[in-house]
């Protein structure tokens, strides 16, 4: 399946509108899923379900959003900060996410800010093409 970025964007937008109950004009590429669109942890799974259906793809857990394999590992998180090894693992696991800003202050509480609408677009684009 080959879709243009606009087509992907429209489907992602519909997905987020349905999953999060937001208005479609709130879904901009820069919108952060948690901070701006109010997503909570269960919503990430809902989003994954809907994206799988919308794009007819399989999304392995841990790939699109960070999972327990990093966030639950005490070697990768120390004193509420993601360690260098943790960052390396996240970067490898999630090439569609820009970790450069986060790396300056890898506070675990800020990890939600990394997940923007554009991260989903990047992930889907990579997956389809």
């Amino acid at each position: 399946m080959s879709l243009s970025r606009e087509e992907i964007y429209e489907k992602v937008k519909d997905t987020l509108v349905d999953a999060l109950g937001v208005d479609d004009d709130e879904v901009t590429e820069d919108a952060r899923l948690m901070e701006d669109l109010g997503a909570e942890s269960i919503d990430f799974l809902d989003i994954v379900f809907r994206l799988e259906k919308a794009f007819d793809i399989k999304i392995p857990r841990e790939e699109l959003f960070p999972g327990d394999n990093v966030l639950g590992d005490s070697d990768l998180i120390v004193d509420g900060k993601v360690t260098e090894a943790g960052l390396a693992q996240l970067t490898e696991q999630m090439p569609h996410v820009d970790f450069s800003e986060f790396a300056k202050d890898p506070d675990i509480n800020k990890i939600g800010d990394l997940f923007k609408v554009s991260s989903i677009l990047g992930y889907i684009e990579g997956k389809l093409n």
Partner: peptide
């Protein structure tokens, strides 16, 4: 059932 997976269902 719309979706049923290991972790959750809709």
């Amino acid at each position: 059932v719309e979706n049923i997976a290991d972790e959750a269902a809709t």
